[in-house]
Write a protein that binds this DNA or RNA. Structure first.
Lengths: 152, 152
DNA sequence: TAGCGTAATGAGAACAGTTTGCAACGAGGG
DNA sequence: CCCTCGTTGCAAACTGTTCTCATTACGCTA
């Protein structure tokens, strides 16, 4: 039997990445990341939404900290930043399983769907190679009208 | 010989499109559009840049008017609006000759290159069809580091 | 060509989203 | 358990964009 005291808090990848960079794990950072983990990848939240979701579940994190944490998480590649534009950037959990996914956005109601397509990824790679650029990520934004909005 | 007085100011497509919509041609609108025409398609300017280019060549147009005019020109499909993000949207002359072109952006220095790729267009079409969306436009943004910036 | 209705402009205030400065706090190594 | 230095909270500052409103001027009609 293992006594509670002997448990060693198995540091998450996030925590060890932080540490190795002289940074610290704080309750605020944990809260933000675990919110995204609970909610799952493929859902896009704005800074404001992260803030209100946390505060409405009793947590107290300042909005400025949310912004700082989101930037940090993006730099550490735990989150992905999307500029679907029209009122604030959005963030989503970066699933390393399916890296380059793209977005289909209804410009009227904001409904957003994701898809993947190897041709798109290859097009990005080819273009980067062509111009001697080093590719970071590519994202295809398809602006469209969803079924509900297109028959109004 | 045709006397100067007999010239009829041949209205530009822009001017006639405006008129047919109850809108008016103003010197400010002319200036903004001709700036883009001089500069050619494939160059992306922010509202601020349009403003400073005009004022520095002696023209006086208020920034608010620039914004209004840019929005108008986009709606009339003379300009294309890009959200390459990182500090302001950018606009470019919409060349109807090569419609769906995409952007390769250096995230460090902002250098932007364009390319075309039919696979990308088809991927957008396919995705829209798949979800029952009606496609409007699709744009692939490839974030990368240009040769100069990648070896620093 | 003058008169007129109304669209468009200029200037600055307002706005939303984001960032920053600074004093207080607290994570975690010694 | 203490001390250091990264982090937080708050409010003020910033940035890109839109709005308000008094004034100007485009372009139709007589």
């Amino acid at each position: 039997m293992i006594s509670p005291a002997s448990y060693r808090t198995h540091p998450s990848p996030f925590e060890s990445d932080l540490r190795s960079d002289g940074k610290r794990m704080t309750p605020q950072r944990k809260k933000v990341l675990s919110l995204f983990e609970e909610i799952g990848s493929g859902i896009h939240l704005s800074a404001e939404e992260v803030h209100s979701k946390l505060t409405s579940s009793g947590e107290k994190v300042s909005l400025a900290t949310i912004y700082r944490t989101l930037r940090l998480l993006v730099k550490m590649t735990f989150l992905n930043e999307l500029d679907l534009s029209e009122g604030g950037n959005r963030f989503e959990l970066l699933s390393h399983d399916h890296p380059d996914h793209h977005h289909l956005i209804c410009i009227r109601c904001g409904r957003t769907e994701e898809f993947e397509n190897n041709n798109v990824i290859n097009a990005g790679k080819a273009a980067a190679k062509n111009f001697g650029f080093k590719l970071l990520e590519s994202s295809l934004n398809v602006r469209a009208l969803c079924p509900k909005c297109s028959n109004k």
